[in-house]
């Protein structure tokens, strides 16, 4: 403990009362973590929750600082994983979507999405895989383009004469923006044009837009 004292709360949050204090020179064992709080055990065997902010001012046994990665702009630029959920519209229907992405470089990402759309005429699912290229990953608001392929499963509503479920392959191209919020979070909004390769003579083009909340690791 290199700071005058470390406050130990009864729970993992600032709203929980401070029940114990660890003095300068004493040591604690870190047991586990819940969000940005660490459960620690003092030399006297008392357990409590210390915030990552407070713990980062303490020292490890070799004299180096205890470091915690809470997420920052540098992490927004380069990270390995990201994921998020969206709400939007797909060809006039309401869209609910979730995605996960793996970064190959700071600019290039491999993405997979699963979406469900719910409309008055038909419901359906979309499963896509594709590439995203982020142009300026160091900018707070960074533009990107996407290109990929997937399948669409359509379930026409029962009010139609002969509802037949069908599945079609699709290709998509899109543009979007990523906006860093704080810590590990960012907003993501995008527009896509989906080319559905139907079994009929003409392909179908379905426009899709979605905005959502995403985080990175």
């Amino acid at each position: 403990m290199a700071v005058p004292y470390l406050e130990l709360h009864t729970g993992p949050g600032r709203g929980y009362p401070v029940a114990q204090v660890v003095g300068r020179g004493e040591s604690v064992d870190v047991l586990y973590r819940h969000t940005d709080w660490f459960k620690v055990r003092t030399e006297r065997g008392i357990e409590g929750w210390a915030s990552a902010q407070d713990l980062s001012r303490t020292l490890l046994a070799d004299g180096s600082r205890f470091t915690v990665n809470l997420g920052d702009r540098a992490g927004f630029r380069s990270h390995t994983w990201e994921g998020g959920v969206f709400a939007g519209a797909y060809a006039g229907a309401t869209l609910i979507s979730a995605y996960a992405a793996l970064s190959v470089t700071d600019n290039l990402k491999i993405e997979a999405d699963a979406s469900q759309y719910l409309g008055n005429i038909s419901n359906g699912y979309l499963f896509d895989i594709g590439l995203a290229h982020v142009f300026m990953p160091e900018w707070r608001v960074s533009p990107f383009v996407t290109l990929g392929t997937g399948i669409e499963l359509v379930e026409p509503k029962a009010t139609l004469a002969q509802p037949i479920n069908r599945s079609d392959q699709l290709g998509y191209a899109g543009i979007g923006l990523r906006c860093y919020l704080t810590r590990r979070f960012f907003l993501r909004g995008e527009f896509r044009s989906n080319e559905i390769f139907t079994r009929t003579n003409t392909n179908e083009v379905d426009k899709e837009w979605r905005v959502g909340f995403a985080f990175f690791y």
């Binding site: 870190v30 586990y32 973590r33 819940h34 969000t35 660490f38 490890l60 046994a61 070799d62 180096s64």
Partner: peptide
Amino acid sequence: QRRTITVPKIKSNN
């Protein structure tokens, strides 16, 4: 002799 400390990964229950 400088002590080299390897910090074990802290388990999180999020």
